[in-house]
Amino acid sequence: MNTVMNKNIFKYLALAIAAVALVFQLFTPSVNAADIPIALRTVPLNDTTNIVLTQKDISKGKKLFTNACATCHLGGATFTNPNVNLSPESLAGAYPTRNNILGLVDYMKNPTTYDGVTEINDVHPSLKSTDIFPIMRGLTDNDLKLIAGYILYEPKVKGIGWGGGKVYY
C-alpha cells in the first residue's frame, strides 16, 4: 500500500511542479537581448540614403558573412592584403566607393581592384565566379545586402578592432 501511495504522491508532486512552471512561463516576460540602438543599426544604403537594419538582418548578415567571407575577412581584416580591410575608411577610399550597401553589393557581384580598374573575380569570390568559389552559389541579392549591412554595422560596435587585424584578437 505504501508504494502505491508513494507513486500517487510522486505523480501529484510532478503535476504541481509542471503547473507552477507553466504559470511562470505564461506570466513572466521573456528575457531577450537588449535592443540594439537605432543609431548603431543605421547604415548607408547609397551615397544619399540610410536604412535601419533589424536585429534579424544583423544576425542573418553575420551568419552569411561568417559562412561566405570570414575565411579571408575575419574581424573585418583582409588576410590576403592587410593594407586593405573592411573598415569604413578603407571602404570609402576604394573606387567606386564601397562604404554603403549598394556599393558593397556591386563589389560582391563584380569585384575590382581598389582603384576600380581591373576585375578580380578570378581571385575574389563573387557571383561571377561561383564555378571557382562555390561558397557564393545560392546567395541572393538580399543575402548580399544582409552581408553588406553586417559589414557596415560591425565597425560601429567594434570600433577600430573591426578591420584592425590580429592585433585586436
Results as ranks from 00 to 15, higher is better:
residue 110 N to G: 09
residue 105 V to L: 10
residue 137 R to T: 15
residue 83 N to V: 09
residue 63 K to H: 12
residue 109 K to F: 06
residue 12 Y to H: 13
residue 127 L to W: 10
residue 96 P to K: 01
residue 102 L to D: 09
residue 106 D to T: 05
residue 36 I to L: 04
residue 165 G to S: 06
residue 136 M to W: 15
residue 41 R to H: 02
residue 169 Y to D: 03
residue 34 A to S: 15
residue 2 N to I: 10
residue 59 S to Q: 11
residue 162 W to Q: 00
residue 96 P to W: 09
residue 159 G to W: 02
residue 79 F to G: 12
residue 93 G to E: 13
residue 55 Q to P: 03
residue 50 N to P: 01
residue 135 I to P: 08
residue 123 V to C: 09
residue 155 P to N: 04
residue 160 I to T: 15
residue 16 A to M: 13
residue 15 L to T: 11
residue 164 G to E: 04
residue 132 I to Y: 01
residue 96 P to E: 04
residue 99 N to E: 05
residue 161 G to I: 03
residue 125 P to E: 08
residue 64 L to E: 03
residue 98 R to K: 13
residue 82 P to Y: 11
residue 147 I to A: 08
residue 56 K to I: 13
residue 56 K to Q: 15
residue 159 G to N: 01
residue 11 K to N: 11
residue 84 V to M: 05
residue 21 A to I: 13
residue 115 D to L: 06
residue 82 P to E: 13
residue 92 A to K: 11
residue 32 N to P: 04
residue 64 L to A: 04
residue 43 V to M: 04
residue 36 I to A: 07
residue 120 I to D: 08
residue 136 M to N: 03
residue 27 F to V: 14
residue 110 N to W: 10
residue 4 V to H: 05
residue 122 D to C: 05
residue 44 P to R: 10
residue 17 I to K: 01
residue 124 H to W: 07
residue 111 P to C: 04
residue 87 S to L: 09
residue 169 Y to A: 13
residue 136 M to Y: 15
residue 39 A to S: 14
residue 11 K to G: 07
residue 55 Q to M: 14
residue 92 A to E: 10
residue 32 N to C: 12
residue 161 G to Y: 02
residue 104 L to R: 02
residue 38 I to Y: 00
residue 135 I to A: 15
residue 75 G to R: 02
residue 9 I to Y: 11
residue 31 V to C: 06
